[in-house]
């Protein structure tokens, strides 16, 4: 049984956006803080630290997860993806990101990386969602700027385009 002590940091290794990484964390360090401070991934946005707003949502083994409700050590051996995983390595944005831009689905953009992670996971599970299903999925996020209209349009359009592609 692996055991980590509270006095001092222990090594944590996982696959981050496709690359193996190792860092050091105290057991209580939240994955949000670990990704931001130890891994330098400032796209992890912290909005509430109690799992409601969804700004910090990442994908853990492909499924959406609240990074603020996950301890960094729990990521050991798992696959963690952030919004950086969406665009092509050349920097070309994904269809989902482009649709968000087209439909003005973001304003301040603080909630956006989390919503993109949920939406990308959602579209892999549900290829042809209804508007109601998209809204149901989005209800796991709070956005205070947009009223969600652009997001709903963007996600539905991506689903349609992927089907016809």
């Amino acid at each position: 049984m692996s055991q980590l002590n509270n006095d001092g940091r222990s090594s944590v290794s996982f696959i981050l956006n496709g690359n193996p990484v190792t860092g050091y964390a105290e057991p209580r360090m939240l994955l949000t803080d670990f990704l931001r401070e130890e891994m330098g991934l400032t796209e992890i946005h912290v909005g509430c630290e109690h799992g409601v707003c969804g700004a910090c949502t990442i994908r853990m083994d492909g499924l959406p997860a609240r990074a603020c409700l996950t301890f960094a050590i729990q990521a050991e051996g798992h696959r963690i993806d952030t919004v950086q995983s969406l665009a092509q390595p050349s920097g070309v944005l994904s269809d989902l990101q482009l649709a968000f831009r087209k439909h003005h689905a973001l304003q301040c953009g603080y909630c956006t990386p989390g919503i993109l992670m949920s939406s990308s996971a959602f579209l892999e599970i549900n290829h042809d969602p209804s508007e109601e299903e998209v809204r149901d999925m989005l209800s796991g996020h709070l956005c205070r700027c947009t009223g969600y209209v652009g997001m709903v349009r963007a996600i539905l359009e991506v689903a349609r385009n992927r089907i016809s592609a």
Binding site: L41, T42, R101, G109, T112, P113
Partner: peptide
């Protein structure tokens, strides 16, 4: 017009 700000925000590269 689409926003000039968005690429950075969508890629998670905008610095808050």
């Amino acid at each position: 017009m689409e926003r000039v700000e968005d690429a950075q925000l969508l890629a998670g590269q905008a610095l808050f």
